[in-house]
């Protein structure tokens, strides 16, 4: 039993899951641009090659606001790996972002 668990853990560590991220922004507002820059930097640094990042401009897709329960923007949703996390703000607090994404 304990061996199995160990190998499971090892699997997890050796084969990291792909990250599915979704960033909701509002056009080219200051916060949006900053958030975009920040998340790109974080992804390139910590998740290089194993992430997908959708960028949605809520101005362009207004119905997405209700579907995704959006109130505060910019909003980053970590769809995978579970659990789903919602990060609001310009993602300037890197430590918090890494924590929330489970990358610390």
């Amino acid at each position: 039993m304990s061996q199995e668990v160990e190998s499971w853990d090892a699997d997890l560590n050796t084969a990291p899951e792909p990250y599915v991220l979704r960033l909701y922004i509002t056009g080219v507002s200051v916060n949006s641009v900053r958030a975009l820059t920040n998340i790109k930097h974080i992804c390139e640094t910590h998740l290089a090659g194993r992430y997908s990042l959708d960028i949605i401009d809520v101005y362009q897709q207004k119905d997405s606001a209700e579907q995704a329960q959006i109130i505060a923007l910019p909003l980053l949703i970590k769809v995978l790996p579970l659990p789903v996390r919602r990060l609001i703000g310009d993602l300037s607090n890197t430590e918090l972002v890494l924590n929330a994404l489970g990358l610390s």
């Binding site: 909701y24 509002t26 507002s29 200051v30 916060n31 900053r34 958030a35 920040n38 809520v58 101005y59 207004k62 606001a65 209700e66 959006i70 109130i71 505060a72 923007l73 910019p74 909003l75 980053l76 789903v84 996390r85 919602r86 990060l87 609001i88 703000g89 310009d90 993602l91 300037s92 607090n93 918090l96 972002v97 924590n99 929330a100």
Partner: peptide, 17 residues
């Protein structure tokens, strides 16, 4: 509990919605 505040934000989402 689901939300992490990571910096500056506004409620533009509410307005759009």
């Amino acid at each position: 509990s689901e939300i992490e505040e990571t910096g500056e934000y506004d409620l533009e989402g509410l307005f759009i919605r």
